[in-house]
Design a protein around this nucleic acid. Structure first.
Length: 239
DNA sequence: TCATTAAATTGTT
DNA sequence: AACAATTTAATGA
């Protein structure tokens, strides 16, 4: 067992491979010196399904990014009642809010499937923030886009039609700026999608069939291909 | 590399 | 929830 104060990233991590580094969206915005420090600082870990990447209340140690796989972000507010789930697909970097304030994590991040998670230390994150304007732009954009995601998530929560919920949730996961690693094909099973959206696998299957019939997506084995993102974004049953 | 087997995922009831 | 059909991943020659 890992000590309570450490993450998997701290205990059994390795250096990032060439391919993994290439998949990091903000890395090529840095200059040579910055890149060098980041690469030296960066740690990568393979996590198994169900494993926790970080836990609510733990002191912040890393700013995380998902290289490959699928994560679930769950946030139970102070007294546990409302729980919001968000899926985190490849290419997403998260935790900057708490890293900025050097607080403790406010989310549980759990792997839904076998995943590859990267991270840089809080110190390096702040070092970049202090000297790189492109990095600051990236973080600002990220915070801004994420705000939009949360607002969309609230709308989704209020929707009653399962088809609508699935469509909008998919649209969020296909966000090209926040999750550039996803591309056209999102690797997610209908089971996993059901878990994120809060529907049974059967109902998800039915909803996906409807979205496919409308030409918005194509259902593939182990994933969904987006054909018309705008259509998904504005999806409303009966129109 | 190929064939066989096991496991995962999907579509349907 | 259970089932059969399909696809992928793993295994070993």
């Amino acid at each position: 067992m890992t000590p309570a104060s450490t993450t998997a990233l701290a205990s059994r991590s390795r250096a990032a491979s060439r391919d993994e580094l290439q998949s990091i969206p903000w890395l090529d915005r840095l200059d040579a010196a910055e890149r060098e420090r980041v690469i030296a600082d960066m740690r990568v870990v393979n996590v198994k399904p169900g494993e926790l990447v970080c836990r609510v209340g733990r002191p912040v140690t890393y700013w995380f990014g998902l290289i490959d796989g699928l994560l679930k972000m769950s946030n139970d507010t102070a007294l546990g009642m409302p729980i919001t789930f968000t899926g985190m697909p490849p290419g997403g970097w998260f935790g900057e809010g708490t890293v900025l304030k050097r607080e403790s994590y406010r989310y549980n991040i759990q792997a839904l499937r076998k995943s590859v998670v990267a991270g840089i230390t809080v110190d390096t994150f702040h070092w970049l923030l202090d000297r790189s304007i492109p990095f600051n732009r990236y973080i600002t954009m990220q915070l801004n886009e994420r705000l939009g995601q949360f607002i969309a998530a609230r709308e989704i929560d209020r929707m009653t039609s399962p088809d609508d919920r699935v469509a909008r949730s998919l649209a969020s996961l296909f966000h090209p700026v926040l999750y550039p690693g996803v591309g056209e094909l999102l690797r997610i099973t209908q089971q996993e999608l059901g878990y994120l959206v809060g529907l049974s696998r059967q109902r998800v299957n039915e909803a996906l069939a409807a979205l496919q019939a409308a030409g918005a997506i194509r259902v593939e084995y182990g994933g969904v291909r987006v054909l018309d993102l705008e259509r998904l974004r504005g999806w409303r049953s009966g129109t």
